[in-house]
Simulated assay, not measured.
Amino acid sequence: MIGIAVLGAGRIGKIHAANVAANPKAKLVAIADPFADAVNPLAERLGTEAMSDCMAAIERPDVDAVVIGTPTDTHVSLLLHAVKLGKAVLCEKPIDLDMAKSEEAAAEVERQNGRVMLAFNRRFDSTFAEMRKAIDAGRIGDVRQVIISSRDPGMPPESYVKTSGGIFRDMTIHDLDIARWLLGEEPVTVTAVGSRLIDPSLRQYDDYDTAMVILQTASGRQAHINNCREAVYGYDQRIEVFGATGMLVQDNLRPTTMRVWTAEATDAREPLLNFFLERYTQAYRAELDAFVDALSDDTEMPTTVRDGVKALRLAECAVESVRTGRAVTV
């Protein structure tokens, strides 16, 4: 059994803690969070120990690995402390909002041969994973274009926006990682535009609510990402991969596949799943299972700190492109 401590008892911490508790190869040793109102009921529900000190949780001798779901500005210190003690880490993205700090952390992890996995959960979504397998199997020939639509159902609260790092580092970064993964080549140029069509007050945070990004690789492969913080019809998550001999499409998920025809509506369906917690439930579970499997089987981590650095670099390029109005070389 791999002893795991989950750091953070917020909405992401709750997901990870439940998934650790459900994994037969892992033991949820503790959940740590300085806010007792969050950590105590979660630990009690999952039958584990509640702690207020994340560093102390890392240092426990019965902890072999940690899952970091704390605020972004704590990631580097917790991650490096765990690596220094020889503990494996599953860390939520991004490593940090600062590019230089992220680069330094990744270099230190690599210098110490740390076992660190970056939590890009969408790679573990069953349909996305099947897309990657189909590409590898040559079912659509050489990839030419990847089109990603990713829209939230509503604006996050201002308290979240202030510390999020902006739409490109917070929201688009998931799509940038998926674009890299599906293209099969690293982008070399980034072109982006950003607008404030929902909340003009985002100007005070130099942020946007609506964005589009174009990526291009050295061979000419392209990816188009479109994001919006508000889609009135629900959590919009679609992907199209166009190749030389075919196309792969991933559509939105709904609670059921039932469709209704009546005098009032034709081909009516249930609304889309509400948000990422519902849409990516399976992906979060598969991500945690992949982390545990890599530890128990002593295999490579399926994602690394370097993946986190590369996705953040693309986000930084998108920010610069919006600022300058020009394509940016990665």
Results as ranks from 00 to 15, higher is better:
residue 162 K to S: 11
residue 170 D to Q: 13
residue 139 R to T: 15
residue 75 H to D: 01
residue 84 K to V: 11
residue 139 R to V: 06
residue 238 R to E: 01
residue 57 A to C: 00
residue 5 A to S: 15
residue 50 A to R: 03
residue 93 K to R: 08
residue 86 G to F: 02
residue 130 E to D: 13
residue 137 A to R: 02
residue 20 V to R: 12
residue 191 T to H: 02
residue 10 G to C: 02
residue 287 E to V: 05
residue 151 R to T: 12
residue 183 L to N: 04
residue 177 D to I: 06
residue 182 L to H: 03
residue 4 I to E: 07
residue 71 P to Q: 11
residue 22 A to I: 06
residue 166 G to W: 01
residue 47 G to P: 00
residue 161 V to M: 06
residue 260 V to E: 13
residue 314 L to P: 12
residue 238 R to V: 10
residue 265 A to H: 14
residue 206 D to Q: 10
residue 156 P to K: 14
residue 58 I to A: 08
residue 282 Q to M: 13
residue 205 Y to K: 00
residue 66 V to G: 05
residue 33 D to H: 03
residue 289 D to W: 09
residue 68 I to A: 07
residue 273 L to D: 04
residue 275 F to Q: 15
residue 160 Y to M: 09
residue 23 N to V: 05
residue 158 E to Q: 01
residue 162 K to T: 15
residue 329 T to F: 00
residue 206 D to A: 05
residue 197 L to H: 05
residue 121 N to A: 12
residue 246 G to K: 03
residue 220 G to T: 05
residue 304 T to S: 15
residue 180 R to P: 06
residue 301 M to V: 13
residue 319 V to Y: 06
residue 241 V to Q: 01
residue 306 R to T: 15
residue 161 V to D: 07
residue 222 Q to V: 12
residue 231 A to E: 15
residue 18 A to W: 01
residue 231 A to S: 13
residue 48 T to L: 01
residue 287 E to A: 11
residue 180 R to M: 12
residue 221 R to I: 03
residue 124 F to G: 05
residue 144 R to T: 15
residue 148 I to Y: 10
residue 329 T to Q: 10
residue 292 V to C: 11
residue 37 D to T: 11
residue 275 F to Y: 14
residue 125 D to A: 12
residue 133 K to T: 13
residue 308 G to P: 03
residue 201 S to D: 05
residue 171 M to L: 14
residue 6 V to S: 07
residue 297 D to V: 02
residue 237 Q to G: 04
residue 279 R to M: 09
residue 90 L to I: 10
residue 122 R to Q: 15
residue 289 D to C: 08
residue 289 D to Q: 15
residue 43 A to V: 07
residue 126 S to R: 09
residue 319 V to L: 03
residue 44 E to Y: 00
residue 119 A to R: 08
residue 223 A to S: 05
residue 182 L to V: 03
residue 228 C to K: 13
residue 212 M to D: 02
residue 137 A to Y: 02
residue 10 G to D: 09
residue 270 E to I: 02
residue 259 R to E: 13
residue 168 F to I: 09
residue 64 D to F: 08
residue 205 Y to F: 07
residue 23 N to W: 09
residue 92 E to Y: 04
residue 32 A to G: 00
residue 122 R to I: 12
residue 108 E to R: 15
residue 218 A to M: 04
residue 100 A to L: 08
residue 311 A to T: 12
residue 5 A to Y: 06
residue 163 T to Y: 01
residue 301 M to F: 01
residue 155 M to L: 15
residue 225 I to V: 11
residue 73 D to V: 11
residue 228 C to A: 12
residue 4 I to G: 08
residue 213 V to C: 06
residue 126 S to Q: 14
residue 143 V to F: 01
residue 68 I to F: 06
residue 293 D to P: 05
residue 255 P to S: 15
residue 116 V to S: 02
residue 217 T to K: 01
residue 88 A to G: 11
residue 37 D to L: 11
residue 277 L to P: 07
residue 201 S to G: 01
residue 161 V to A: 06
residue 79 L to K: 06
residue 72 T to F: 04
residue 242 F to V: 15
residue 43 A to W: 02
residue 207 D to C: 09
residue 53 D to A: 03
residue 204 Q to E: 01
residue 25 K to R: 13
residue 318 A to H: 06
